Simulated scan of single mutants.
Amino acid sequence: MAKSRKLEEILATLNQIRDDPASEEAIATLRQTLKGRYSVAIAQVAKIVREATLFQLLPDLVAAFDRMMVKPVETDPGCLAKKEIAETLYHLEYSEENLFLHGVRHVQMEPVWGGKEDKATTLRGTCALGLVRMNYPQALVELGDLLADPEVEARIAAARAIAYTENPAGIPLLRLRVKVGDQPAVLIECLMALLKLAPTETLPLIKNFLYPHPELPGLVRDIETTEAAVLALGESHLPEAFDILKDWWQSIHEPELRRSGLLAIAMLRHEEALNFLLSVLAAGSIADARAAIAALNLYRQDSSLWQRVYQTIEDRGDRELLAKVREG
């Protein structure tokens, strides 16, 4: 039977098993599939085990993972199966560190148009979380390495995992990553992690991204980096962040940053912040008023607040603005 036909039959069988995955017959089929050579099918089994919490199949998942670490590009192209297995073991609180250690260090370069691409970045991030969840003693060592990973996705996962540890020992790692510099997506995760682990100590660091700093000129690089710092403040929901954002917003002139600043203020979800947005809507420039409406859209389902928005615009007497709000 052709490989594609055989795989289609296996996947069809697995789809049927989802109706009763814990039956004796289903368990036997799942176990047999895990011993097979089709990584796509093994990935589906891992999902079924996770959804149905089939703890009895955890040893079989581990065995399949270990087997696909041998010649991984051939046995598990795209790292599909190993990613799903690691996700399942993490969610079912598997507590042996060896698999997660192998996964957090695994790099799987595969041919793509114009070169090669690492397909194991998601796997490394999931395994990092697995080590944290099981309180592996050297987890921060692995997370420090992952924070220097060549792949953006892996560095983001490292920052999230360090926040998940709730361990102050991770603060120096995050601060170093921030000060060395990185992509905005990584910076925002690092800053959010720092705001979780050490909010008071992190606020002055974030200010260095908001204003030109003669002693640290390299910290303010571009609009995207500044925007990352602003949104991290918004995500923090810290009351202290409001005055920082408000004062900064009132000092800048770049339209893009002014829009991001109002969005960050809305993200704080504090009454004082909402009142400020309404004041911008009432008396700000037309560009700022439109940006305030866009930021307040976070609260579109809050009928009482939205009534205040309507009333503010009516009092302003701007029909075009009122039409924009009604259009959504």
Rank of each mutant, 00 (worst) to 15 (best):
V325Q: 07
P239W: 00
L305A: 15
K83V: 07
V40E: 15
V70H: 07
R259M: 11
T75V: 07
P255Y: 05
K71Q: 10
Q138E: 10
G125C: 08
A22P: 15
A323Y: 06
M68N: 11
A64K: 03
E320V: 09
E9N: 12
E51V: 12
Y310D: 14
L7E: 12
E97M: 01
P111D: 10
A264P: 12
E96W: 01
L173D: 02
V230F: 02
S4Y: 04
P172G: 05
V112W: 09
A81D: 13
L174I: 06
R175F: 08
P214C: 01
I188T: 14
E272W: 02
E271H: 15
E87S: 12
E151F: 09
T122A: 12
Y136G: 04
L197C: 11
K179N: 10
V180G: 04
E327G: 11
Y310N: 15
A282W: 03
A161T: 08
C127G: 11
I171R: 00
D145Q: 13
D318H: 08
A28L: 14
W248K: 00
V45R: 03
E97D: 08
Y211L: 02
L197H: 07
Y90R: 11
L216H: 14
T53G: 05
L195H: 10
K83D: 12
G234R: 00
C79N: 12
E151I: 10
P172C: 00
Y38L: 04
Y90T: 07
K246Y: 05
L219C: 10
G170V: 06
E240W: 04
L238H: 12
E189V: 15
S39L: 02
A169T: 15
A228H: 14
I286C: 01
L203K: 11
A229L: 00
L176Y: 12
V180K: 02
V186K: 01
L197P: 14
A161C: 08
A41N: 03
E74V: 09
N98D: 06
I223T: 13
A43C: 08
E271T: 15
R155P: 09
L54P: 13
S251V: 12
P239T: 02
D76S: 03
N275M: 01
Y299M: 02
P255Q: 00
G103V: 06
T202H: 00
K71R: 06
D243L: 09
I223M: 04
D182P: 04
A28M: 04
K119E: 11
Q16P: 10
E117Y: 05
S251K: 13
H237T: 15
R319N: 11
F209V: 10
D20N: 15
R258I: 12
L296C: 13
E24L: 05
S251W: 08
P21K: 03
A26Y: 07
A161H: 07
H106V: 03
L176P: 13
P72T: 10
D76W: 01
S279T: 13
A139K: 02
G261L: 00
K119W: 09
A291W: 06
Y94Q: 05
